[in-house]
Design a protein around this nucleic acid. Structure first.
Lengths: 121, 121
DNA sequence: TATACTGCTATACTAAAGTATAGCAATATA
DNA sequence: TATATTGCTATACTTTAGTATAGCAGTATA
């Protein structure tokens, strides 16, 4: 009776796994508690460090600094230094960072409908 | 010169924060390394525990069990027990879980284009 | 002179996520 | 009889994420 193992698994042995892979990549790049919030803030406008700190509720400068570096490394965020004294630094989205807009918008819609769902129950 | 604080921040003081909120909800519900992979596997077909373990590369039974419970609690996954001996248990997506399909598809597309980008550089 | 601002970094810590390994009952298969 | 299967749970551990607090240089503001 439990013999059917191969029979059931054969349905989508590679197809399902293949489907998961690119989504895993996305999770690696923009997963975690802070990265999407940062990206969203930057999609509104260029921000300086302290501005981001204020827009993203609850984030500590340590986390913000860490995540900005990661996002820069992955080519999503641009860091521009102005040699005023003291230096002012602007963070902006690269084109590649901007290309997440669809993902963010889809997630936002789902999130909103979830809120509505909770409220209407 | 640094006096402009309110001038710059006033642009989107609440708008940006408001925009972030529903996305945060999504992160809370399906964030982390394993939840979306699990949901994707279940979007292909109903799975039993060991089948999921095989489809989702690298997951341990502890994590799978934990995340399935969370997903059930949040109403995304359904757990159905058949009182055969030994019991067999089927995990499936609820309609609400299924409603993530757009989010997943958008993420997948972005993930694929990221792969292409890396390959083409 | 005292305080606040900017753009962080350092240190020390806690909490959450994740891994590794083993095991159990009961049946089926070799 | 030995091994494999299912659907997990228990224990112990490591790693990563995240928090809390303090501080610095240099300017501007009160």
């Amino acid at each position: 009776m439990n013999k059917k193992k191969n029979e059931t698994d054969i349905y989508t042995p590679t197809e399902c796994k293949k489907f998961i892979l690119p989504v895993r990549d996305v999770i690696d790049i923009v997963g975690g508690k802070w990265r999407l919030p940062i990206i969203i803030a930057l999609s509104f406008k260029i921000h300086r460090f302290k501005e981001l700190e204020r827009q993203i509720e609850g984030i500590t400068p340590r986390m913000l600094s860490k995540e900005l570096k990661e996002l820069e490394t992955n080519g999503l965020v641009n860091r521009k230094v102005f040699d005023t004294i003291p230096a002012s630094i602007e963070y902006s989205l690269t084109d590649y960072g901007k290309s997440l807009d669809k993902v963010i918008e889809t997630m936002r819609e789902w999130g909103l409908s979830h809120r509505n769902k909770i409220i209407n129950e």
